[in-house]
Design a protein around this nucleic acid. Structure first.
Lengths: 139, 139
DNA sequence: CTAAACTTTGCAATCGCATTGCATCCTTAT
DNA sequence: ATAAGGATGCAATGCGATTGCAAAGTTTAG
């Protein structure tokens, strides 16, 4: 498992430090996208800025993608192994207005979405908001 | 025209003060969505917080809708007269990565978008980013 | 017409998240 | 071993959003 994580970092050309392995581990264990605050909550002793920069590094190397779910805080989720953050890799995200979780809808690819032909499209961000499965069952 | 603006406010049950008429006028003259900063730039003497609250009031009464285009600052655009911000009124937005303009793609309705059936959908935010028509012509 | 009640506006201040600068520590290459 | 480069920690700042409070303006009951 440790080895596995290390290989993941190496495959993205990210130097595998202890901190990065821990952050990657956290991200891979999480069902939902994590904000910097979320991440900080998982590490009593880690510095906020270090976590911030770790996420930035991951993002630059396309290990994670950022999600703007409108809560004010950016969230990050692991990319799939094959992901290159190219148009065909883009997918929708769901944000629960109740539990505030945000997760990837990996099956909702955005590459086939029709776009206005008078614009040069570079990225697409689709966030669906509502109640997640769990929260819609509980009343 | 003044009358017209006043009627618009009244139809949304917003008390038409001088400030609100001016802000509405600004919004209706603008091709693109405006941030609080944008708005502030148009009024030398207006207080930022008053503009902020004016937008909040407009939003509450569904005169404007907010757009999260990922630039960090919320933007606001006028709703159409018939808009009630219900699912069938939702449309996509385009954000130009060059000139930073954001505008409504009113023809891109989101109501017919298929959504995951294990979630209760309340809102959808679709932001397409790239180069707008103008900026893609200029090299 | 006037006083009370409510709304709107302006100013000061605060909060939260993102981001940067800089010094220190650690790792790597020579 | 040593210099060079990268990673980390701490302090500080920037910026947008938001709130509290008092002054000014508006509406309404009497």
């Amino acid at each position: 498992m440790q080895d596995n994580l290390e290989e993941i970092l190496l495959s993205r050309k990210i130097h595998p430090t202890a901190m990065r392995l821990l952050v990657l581990d956290e991200l891979s264990k999480s069902e939902s996208a994590l904000s910097l605050n979320d991440l900080e909550g998982h590490f009593e002793r880690a510095d906020r800025v270090t976590l911030y920069r770790t996420l930035k590094t991951f993002e630059k190397h396309k290990l994670v993608h950022r999600i703007e779910d409108g809560t004010g805080a950016l969230k990050y989720a692991l990319c799939e192994a094959s992901c290159d953050c190219a148009p065909q890799d883009l997918h929708a995200h769901f944000h629960c207005n109740k539990c505030q979780s945000t997760f990837c809808l990996k099956d909702y690819h955005l590459s086939q979405m029709k776009t206005p032909n008078n614009f040069q499209v570079e990225e697409i961000s689709l966030v669906i908001k509502g109640l997640c499965e769990q929260c819609s069952h509980v009343n």
